[in-house]
Design a protein around this nucleic acid. Structure first.
Lengths: 189, 189
DNA sequence: AAAGCCACTTGACATATATCAAGAAATCAG
DNA sequence: CTGATTTCTTGATATATGTCAAGTGGCTTT
């Protein structure tokens, strides 16, 4: 199995043969640090798997940027609403570091069902899983203090914690960089 | 068309004949104020459409309850993660008022695809739509003040605003009832 | 009509977190 | 390696929001 096939395998319970067929539809590409994968207002025609590196998903407001999420090695990235409904993308997605991607174009993505009969069910499970992750995130934002959100995220995303600029981490957790800095100091003692 | 068919029609672009077939799978039922539709820890085997009334979706913590959402007339309700993955439900769902539902059992739900060839695609669009609503909600929680969240929700859900106990509204917006009360007073002047 | 129960409002005060500004540390470019 | 940016930390202070407690008013029950 190639590396991409292994990753696909970790998400989808495909037969080896199916894995190969789907993997064939992806093309490897790279982004330099600072390059945009997508920009607000453009329609998203692709879905990618992050092989290495990090992408920051954010919105630019008049006075500041709001980071929605940071995707790292092993995540899929796309603007789902734009990909599915052909609406203008709502997010900017920018490489925080040099990033290697495997990318499938929408036209090919839409044909996976022809290659793999079980695809609709597989995709359904995948999107439903993403949905429940969002539910949990909302619950955390509603019910936790800044420090609790920090700790929770730290527990669940140790690996990226010291690789992401603090200001972006802070924004995606709904707090300021100063607050994170103080939480860290407090937890040293 | 029956009322249920009209509602289904507003969500799904079905043929009239298909509407009828699907609508046949739903059974009308009612909940009295205070009755539970689901409870934390139980597996959810059904999906319902709210014909009238309101359900509150919440989690009980040691010291307080956190209201995740309030579903009203015209919403579908279920615990998606539990329905799809057969995991214990994470939410309580309780009727805030007497409530009329149209309910489909999981076994029937899973057979919709046999009745309607286009169902997988339709369901995919529906779940994707739900996903983007969650994305927006997270963005609002990350980027807005309490007052902005209140105003935003008010704009988008005028009809239920004066029917829901303040404490539940407050919780689902991530603030206290006192804060809502003060926002309201401020906005009178 | 009285009593009791809620839900809501209001005020006083507490606290978490934000803001602003300065300095320290890390990273980057030449 | 060195200076220039950028990012992080820290302190002082401000502000939004939470907490607690009391009071008001509206419903419901009898």
């Amino acid at each position: 199995m190639t590396e991409l096939e292994q990753y696909l395998h970790s998400y989808f319970a495909f037969e080896r043969e199916d894995l190969y067929k789907v993997a064939q539809l992806f093309r490897k590409s790279t982004l330099k640090k600072g390059d945009y994968y997508l920009q607000t207002g453009k329609i998203c025609n692709k879905l990618s798997f992050i092989q290495s590196g990090m992408l920051r998903i954010f919105v630019s407001q008049e006075d500041r940027e709001v980071t929605q999420w940071i995707s790292t090695k092993g995540y899929f990235v796309t603007d789902l609403a734009s990909l599915v409904f052909r609406t203008p993308g709502r997010w900017n997605m920018q490489a925080l570091t040099d990033t290697e991607l495997y990318t499938i174009e929408k036209a090919d993505y839409d044909r996976i069902g022809e290659l793999i009969p079980r695809w609709p069910e597989t995709e359904r499970l995948f999107i439903a899983h993403c949905f429940t992750i969002m539910e949990d995130r909302i619950f955390n934002l509603l019910s936790m203090t800044a420090e609790q959100r920090y700790n929770f995220f730290f527990e669940h995303n140790r690996e990226i914690f010291n690789q992401v600029p603090l200001q972006y981490l802070a924004s995606m957790l709904g707090m300021t960089p100063e607050t994170i800095s103080r939480i860290r100091r407090k937890q040293l003692s």
